[in-house]
Amino acid sequence: MSRNKQLRNLSLSGPYLFWIIGGTLIPLVMMLWYGLTADDGSFTLANVLAIGEPGHAKALGQALLYSAISTVICFLLAFPLAVILRKSKMGVKGFILFVFILPMWMNFLLRTMAWQVLLEKGGVINGVLTWMGLPRMRLINTPGAIIMGMVYDFLPFMIMPLYNVMSKIENSVIEAAKDLGASDWQVLYKVLLPLSVPGIVSGVTMVFVPALTTFVISNMLGGGKIFLIGNVIEHEFTVGDNWHLGAGLSLVMMVFILISMAFIAKFDKNGEGNLI
């Protein structure tokens, strides 16, 4: 490559390099620095080890549990959907996919608020129950409400990658399996499922990571009574004002994000399950 060409490439990619360094790398280093120092700037592991305190450990445990449950529910809802959509005709396909992805573009806060309106004590569902002469139910501020919100908010993130990998599976592969005597169930279990692994891994990560780290859903649907790890961290940065502790706990949370990223790198090498 000539010097001239190299210069031109540098000037084209220069602003991007600046942004990667200034917008991604330096901030992450700052997080690491805050997490591993005390107020006076001395090195300490106390902020990271603080995850062992009962309140923090419980918040992390609950976050892991709720996000795992909602990831499983999202998968169980989205997998059959992707199988059905795979078979639909080309013209209809674009439209159907559009229908399932559209809610994703609606403001995230509004979608979560909608569930608050539905589940509230004087909300829509209880309104309907009263109108039918049935007793009211306690729906909001429960773990169930939070899981419901997670499933609702992140379901499209599971549908997209699953549909993307499945629509690429050739019909001939399935016909071959059937010609060789596979039943519908075997086709699903032995052909479609293994071939969609890249999409499953992407989908699981794209639901699990935002669900694990959320503080919005737990705040709006948990009534500020159920604390997830995201709530603890957000609290330290806004109200609690102990940024070192917040950063230390974020580092612990990032371990789980890194594990998810490693899974994607291993199973989805070609980016087949990408969102776009």
């Binding site: 330096i26 700052m30 935002p210 503080f215």
Partner: peptide, 23 residues
């Protein structure tokens, strides 16, 4: 470079937001 491009995409928003604020 493409690997670096993936970091903000896969990272949790709360980490992106807090780390930018710290910077």
């Amino acid at each position: 470079l493409l690997g670096a491009n993936n970091i903000p995409l896969l990272n949790a928003d709360i980490v992106t937001g807090i780390s930018l604020m710290l910077m």
